[in-house]
Nucleic acid binder design. Structure first.
Lengths: 396, 396
DNA sequence: CCGACTTTCTCCACTCAGAGGACAAAGACG
DNA sequence: CGTCTTTGTCCTCTGAGTGGAGAAAGTCGG
């Protein structure tokens, strides 16, 4: 089902749409206070927006001592689809035009099964959300994939952990299937956009968003805009050398950060520790579950297991050293830590903070918050919705 | 002597000024081809510019088969002053409005003597250039200093190698003395702007410019604009840890890149080698000169001295490792190596390239040139002139 | 219930940026 | 010398945007 959604005709309209998205319903007068246009010009642009499907006027607001104002708001029937494809699971959410999550599904899925299988799954999840009455159709969709993307075309390029996806026309294919505009980006960039839109980074122009999951990546925001680099691989910090002559990494080098600390590395280290009898706690979990994951390490740490705590602390140290270098280089106003491994919580954060504050210069760290993401697994899908909404709310 | 120079009245005029600066004299028709304005509108804006001192029309160009065109050009009498204050020397140059260098002076000076002594020197050098007939007065000046700068105010903040400068109102003081607008920036950023304007980075939007001199810094250009970070310390890579538990650094940590490779570190290592009798070449230079500097190492290396070559190679390895991390993170389209140490030439470059191409992922390095700067010591002063010209050629 | 005051929104006249076409100026060329 | 080409100027028209007058719709005190 294709829905024809208009795009704003000029920069003023785009500005107004974004104000309505981020600030909710507004009167014409309130909008006028924010856009520095005369009331007459504003009225013209609002009227044009009302003629599209994008914006509606419904009802009157309570009086504030004078004539009651009309409520101008984004069409409450608009629906965006946010999709976050991780290495081991898929998140799909439906939002309204104000990017409020109306429904959210999560299913395990190995991204290595390839784009066809994955998108079958994604479409099934989208259909489920739709049939539960949350949406009749979608006006746009944002997709995050765990690897570099040639952004203008929406095509993954040379993704290390999802080889079958190289060159697959994600944007085009999904646009066909869903019958709506689609934008594709790296999952880490979407997490950054999510935290920027609705999380801890709302007021910061330049920040880093480090996502530690199966792999490690970093979203870079410069002047409020995601920076993607020359070939779309900016933020790919998992293969920065953290330990000289360290562990061998899948990329062929030794000592990569990702080889020493990530969901996969942590599970491996925990297995080793359990098998060597270093931790009764981990060993017992190994018996019950058959396999250990980062979640088991988190649980063991929460139970006070010293081996698990040491694993986390060491990983945090490595990560912190790398981040310290990035902080010196980039001088961000905020560092956000997110991804699956955030379950490790304060132990991890403390280790990272210690390294950064110790190694980077005072001018760069003096006023630098290092915090966990606020949105957890929702950051990706909110970021995805934000991506497509930014696109649709820009002049055609 | 104060000269009143007008600023462009709108974005069109600013655009035209920059076209004339970067492209030289042009006819109205040629300008029209580049700015996507109607010829009538263009004529209006050009006329307004002609009414200011900024632009003049002189003479007619040769015919190209029809009516001869008027030459529109920036006023050839405009003069900018470019000042590059290094740790151990000062460069001052005069340029015309097209940023062509008309005269260039260099004098040794220790920046630690403080702002008053340094600016006395700078003003003397400027006066010398002026009295040699190159300029009657200056329409603007750009100043580079070897440390972080609070850019909007033009004030150094917490500069490690020039403690006496903290908070000194460079912009205001020099603006008073010179009687013209002044902009201040980090010397590394100016080098990047110089190479962008007239050097190897002319066509690249996102690149890094690593300057290895007394210290080490890195200019970051994002989308054609210098990125300065939240507190103005972006690019301060000298204190990224290059060697775990390595040499102690002035900053209090150990193993900083700058402690292992920089003009100062190289001189120190060469002294040690000479005193330990590891290199006859270096020892003989020690006798003649009394003290060794990076220049001696470069000369010894050129003469084939294995110890000197090894010092350079090792330093290049360290630097290359750090740059490899930055390349993974930032995914630039170009890396420029500059600064005093570039005298070490191909040995250094080869070591850096080896490390970067080996350690960073193919997607980031596949099409990544790593080259020496093209402008040498002129990069800083050209960048400084570019800085002030960008400022003056923007709408007031 | 009425008049004074507020706030919101609409309408209208005026200004100015900018486009586009006609045309004048000035040269090349056969 | 007439025709063609290129450059530059002039004039008219459109549409964006401003600012002010005033209508619409409310609150509040007497």
């Amino acid at each position: 089902m294709r829905r024809m959604t208009a795009r704003p005709g000029n920069a003023h309209q785009a500005r107004l749409l974004k104000l309505l998205r981020d600030g909710g319903p507004n009167s014409r007068a309130q909008l006028g206070d924010q856009v520095d246009l005369s009331r007459s010009k504003l009225a013209v642009e609002v009227d044009r927006l009302l003629q599209t499907r994008l914006v509606v006027a419904d009802g009157l607001a309570a009086s504030r001592g004078g004539r009651r104002s009309h409520n101008i708001r984004l069409n409450p029937e608009l629906r965006f689809l946010g999709v976050d494809i991780g290495a081991t699971s898929i998140d799909v959410a439906v939002t309204n035009a104000e990017l409020e999550t109306l429904g959210h599904l999560n299913q395990p899925m190995d991204v290595r099964e390839g784009p066809v299988a994955v998108f079958e799954q994604v479409l099934a999840m989208a259909a489920k959300l739709r049939s539960s009455g949350l949406a009749e159709g979608f006006d746009g969709a944002g997709i995050g994939v765990p690897g570099p993307v040639r952004f203008p075309e929406g095509v993954p390029v040379a993704p290390p952990i999802m080889p079958g996806w190289d060159g697959f026309p994600v944007r085009e294919a999904l646009s066909q299937e869903l019958g709506c505009p689609v934008m594709v980006d790296n999952d880490v960039n979407l997490m950054a956009m999510g935290e920027q839109h609705a999380g801890v980074a709302r007021t910061v122009a330049d920040f880093l968003c480090v996502k530690i999951g199966t792999g490690i990546g970093c979203g870079i925001v410069v002047g409020g805009e995601v920076y993607r680099g020359t070939t779309g691989s900016a933020g790919d910090i998992g293969h920065i050398q953290a330990v000289p002559d360290g562990r061998p990494c899948a990329c062929g080098n030794r000592g990569c950060l990702e080889a020493h600390f990530s969901g996969a590395a942590l599970a491996r280290d925990a297995m080793e520790a359990a098998q060597q009898g270093l931790s009764a706690e981990l060993a017992s979990r190994l018996e019950t579950g058959g396999d250990l994951s980062a979640v088991d390490v988190a649980a063991a740490a929460a139970a006070g297991d010293p081996t698990a705590l040491e694993l986390i602390r060491e990983g945090g140290d490595r990560t912190g050293q790398v981040i310290a270098g990035l902080v010196s280089f980039f001088n961000p106003g905020l560092v956000v830590i997110g991804g699956g491994v955030t379950g490790l919580g304060h132990t991890l954060l403390a280790a990272i903070r210690t390294q950064v504050y110790r190694q980077s210069l005072p001018l760069a760290t003096g006023n630098l918050p290092i915090v966990l993401g606020e949105l957890g697994p929702a950051a990706g899908v909110i970021g995805a919705a934000r991506l497509i909404s930014d696109h649709l709310f820009s002049p055609a």
